[in-house]
């Protein structure tokens, strides 16, 4: 079981306001290694660089959206990176997106507005860390 202080989390979200909220929440949960990206393209570069343990990712972003990001990630030829758990953050629950995400083995879904408890649950479930 990893220590929460050692966990690396990447947040991909285009809205700065939401990024700030997420950063605050994660800090509160004692996550200290947080990286941020504003779209799927930057998100992917950061993923290659920092090799996060968990990614929280918005779906609606420009120019590279969340589904495109996840598609690219899952097809990457380095299992350690390609299998990174990804949790989608979204304000809608459009069925087509849900299906696509499911096919791409998304690890979880969070509907905005997000709460500390939501993050806690996802981290506990996916990384098996007691918070």
């Amino acid at each position: 079981m990893p220590n929460i202080e050692d966990v690396r989390i990447l947040v991909i979200e285009d809205e700065e306001f939401i990024r700030t909220i997420i950063f605050q929440i994660l800090s509160k949960l004692r996550v200290s290694k947080i990286s941020e990206a504003v779209d799927g393209g930057e998100g992917f570069r950061k993923t290659m660089l920092m090799k996060p343990d968990l990614i929280f990712c918005d779906i609606h972003m420009e120019p590279v959206n969340g589904i495109q990001f996840l598609t690219k990630l899952r097809s990457f030829n380095k299992p350690e990176i390609a299998n990174t758990p990804v949790v989608f953050l979204t304000s809608d629950t459009q069925e087509s997106n849900v299906m696509k995400a499911k096919k791409l083995k998304v690890s979880g879904y969070m509907v905005k507005p997000v709460s500390v408890n939501d993050f806690k649950k996802q981290i506990t479930r996916i990384l098996k860390i007691d918070l």
């Binding site: 570069r45 660089l49 990457f76 030829n77």
Partner: peptide, 28 residues
């Protein structure tokens, strides 16, 4: 680490992935 990834991909003849990794060299 990034250099190691690039080397691994080149060793595995996966040039596309190597190039992907190489694209973040400036970031690193």
């Amino acid at each position: 680490d990034l250099m190691g990834d690039i080397q691994d991909m080149l060793d595995a003849d996966d040039l596309a992935t190597a190039a992907e990794f190489a694209s973040v060299i400036p970031d690193a």
